[in-house]
Design a protein around this nucleic acid. Structure first.
Lengths: 136, 136
DNA sequence: ATAAACCTTATAGTTAACTCCAAGGCAAGA
DNA sequence: TCTTGCCTTGGAGTTAACTATAAGGTTTAT
């Protein structure tokens, strides 16, 4: 599969795929005789994973860290490091989920009490209970 | 409350607070005789809301849109627009939560099947089922 | 009364993550 | 064979969201 097809399949641009490969977010992709990239299932799996994790808000840097380890010899140490990274990233995601749930609560509170609450909030009028005292 | 106190209370920098005010993410803050910012409860509420929504991944641009409306006369039209924005942002957050839950599934799958699966994935060896066919 | 530690605005610089461009090679159809 | 549409690399440009600097005013402690 050429780069354009691979890019559109995952809703990315060819430039982004080349960029990801160049900076080491994913390992070097298979090439054909002319030196063109020819994406295999393995490469597509990498794109899928990278896309998911990027969309979830993980940084390029943490993905490079993981991809780098993935290309090393799988010694005990490297395996342990990989597991650590995966677990760290899981924790990051769990935190983000928690944060989003809190924000969701705040926002739906503001929507529910829109008329009496938000009007006061946006005006200069005094508000009895400050929002930031965690009274969602 | 001066800018430094306000900033540290919400784990931001004074520069960021000035920046938020300048670009219109929040309305102008109360000033004292010397022209120094003196944050009131109302201002702190704004910071709280902005921080939450930024941390949840909403863009500066959408916050400017909301803050701009909040400073207008509260006509029927403006109220409708504000409610629309709040509901749109709620939808954005719900999408993000959904996305994170999917990613969480993928990641914990990779952790659970680490030894048999990830090793194959990272190597050049063939993988029977492509990840991107939604088989989490 | 002077130094330290705040504050102000205006403007320039930084960082992350792309995104685009130039210059040129390869492949398929009229 | 020539045009169209891919592809390549290297490097420059862009955008969002800060972050830092300069030049100067205020407040507080010694």
């Amino acid at each position: 599969m050429n780069i354009k097809e691979a890019a559109t399949k995952f809703d990315l641009t060819a430039d982004t795929l080349r960029y990801y490969e160049r900076i080491g977010v994913m390992p070097p992709v298979t090439r054909n005789q002319s030196g063109y990239r020819d994406y295999q299932v393995r490469d597509l799996n990498w794109i899928y994973l990278v896309k998911k994790l990027r969309d979830a808000g993980l940084t390029i840097e943490s993905l490079i860290e993981f991809a780098t380890l993935a290309q090393m010899d799988r010694t005990q140490d490297v395996q342990a490091a990989q597991k650590t990274i995966l677990n760290d990233q899981l924790e990051v995601i769990d935190q983000k989920i928690q944060e989003l749930n809190d924000t969701r609560k705040l926002l739906s509170f503001k929507i529910d009490t829109y008329d009496e609450h938000l009007a006061l909030f946006a005006d200069g009028k005094t508000m009895p209970d400050p929002l930031w005292k965690e009274n969602l």
